[in-house]
């Protein structure tokens, strides 16, 4: 068990390394470097920077060095907490992103919990009542859920709220609380707003997981150990919950590995529709204006978030599945 966790933790290093490479490549892709863009930006705003400042910036970020060196300078700086400058915001990237990433994490994990809480029982229902009316309804809804882009759903929710409630449901806080310090009332306000993005984001995930849970459980329901349980005299409900469901739970847990990327992906788009204070809107803004240090850092941290989520689910899986626990 300990060996498994240790090995799994060690695997994080190459993954982190690869993520930083991906982020760095994205930062470097647009033509021209950061300082050129910065200079051009200043020039258009009418206060051209002097070349000494620009050279100092070049030196600081090692832009005159070969790519490999630049990469290591960037990673080194990042480890020290310096993620470069955002020329849109005219401030260091690290000042901008943490609040936003915190909100992204909150939304992603709340949605994950919601997705699981709904998909698990619905999937069980759909499998146990295979080919019933209820199963057909669930199946059709899950296909529909998988076919609807989350941003479209967000738009529809917005439209409906304006049309029928008379106000817009965007944001995570009421106007009074947007800039207020954290308090109990602010938390309540957050919870009141949070459910809409959670539901909108969760639909596609729920739809996919219901299909998976149903398929897994149908596989397990046909296994001989279910018959063993029945021959013991177990009541049907206990039997299904205690045996096949328990076994089907394991592949279900490992779906975190792909649900989380989907959620973080969805967050990027949905949050810009619902104007949530998560990392999505500023990422899109940054990418549109090719503010690459900001964009690269956000992409990197979103990937890291997913990697950590996957790590946690793998460790959880090792706790519940003896076959992994003992397989050393």
């Amino acid at each position: 068990m300990l060996g498994f966790i240790l090995r799994r933790l060690l695997w994080m290093f190459p993954s982190f390394f690869a993520v930083t490479v991906v982020a760095f490549v994205i930062i470097q892709l647009p033509p021209g470097d950061f300082v050129t863009s910065y200079a051009a930006d200043l020039a258009t705003s009418g206060s051209p920077a002097d070349s000494a400042t620009l050279d100092a910036l070049r030196l600081r970020y090692g832009l005159d060095q070969p790519m490999v060196v630049q990469y290591f300078t960037w990673v080194g700086n990042a480890l020290k907490g310096d993620l470069g400058m955002s020329f849109e915001y005219r401030s260091p990237v690290s000042d901008i992103i943490w609040d936003r990433l915190g909100m992204t994490t909150l939304v992603a994990f709340c949605t994950l919990a919601f997705v699981w809480l709904v998909a698990f029982p619905v999937g069980i229902f759909s499998a146990v009542r295979q080919y019933s009316i209820g199963d057909y309804v669930v199946t059709f809804l899950s296909f529909l859920g998988m076919a609807t882009p989350s941003f479209l759903l967000a738009l529809v929710v917005m439209y409906l709220s304006v049309e029928f409630l008379g106000y817009s449901v965007g944001g995570l806080f009421s106007p009074d609380f947007v800039n207020a310090p954290w308090s109990f009332a602010r938390v309540i306000d957050l919870v009141q707003h949070l459910w809409i993005p959670v539901v909108v984001l969760g639909v596609a995930g729920i739809a996919a997981l219901v299909r998976i849970m149903r398929a897994n459980l149908l596989d397990e329901l046909g296994k001989p150990y279910v018959e063993t349980g029945r021959a013991k005299g177990l009541p049907e409900t206990t039997l299904i919950l205690r045996y096949p469901t328990r076994v089907a739970l394991n592949p279900f847990i490992s779906t975190v590995g792909w649900v989380l990327p989907v959620l973080v992906s969805g967050d990027v788009i949905v949050s810009s529709v619902l104007s949530l204070p998560t990392s999505g809107p500023i990422l899109i803004q940054a990418l549109k204006t090719q503010d690459m240090y900001l964009g690269g850092a956000l992409i990197m941290f979103q990937c890291v978030l997913v990697l950590i989520g996957t790590l946690l689910s793998d460790i959880l899986l090792a706790f519940v599945d003896p076959r992994i626990r003992y397989d050393n």
Binding site: P224, Y225, E227, A231, K232, P235, R246, V247
Partner: peptide
């Protein structure tokens, strides 16, 4: 699925199955 038959299964009549690999739950 009733109570009466369930009280017979495993108590009065029990069964041993063919596949020793898959007739026991792997996670218990």
């Amino acid at each position: 699925k009733g109570r009466q038959i369930r009280s017979v299964r495993g108590r009065d009549i029990s069964m041993i199955f063919q596949e020793p690999m898959s007739s026991l739950s792997p996670v218990h």
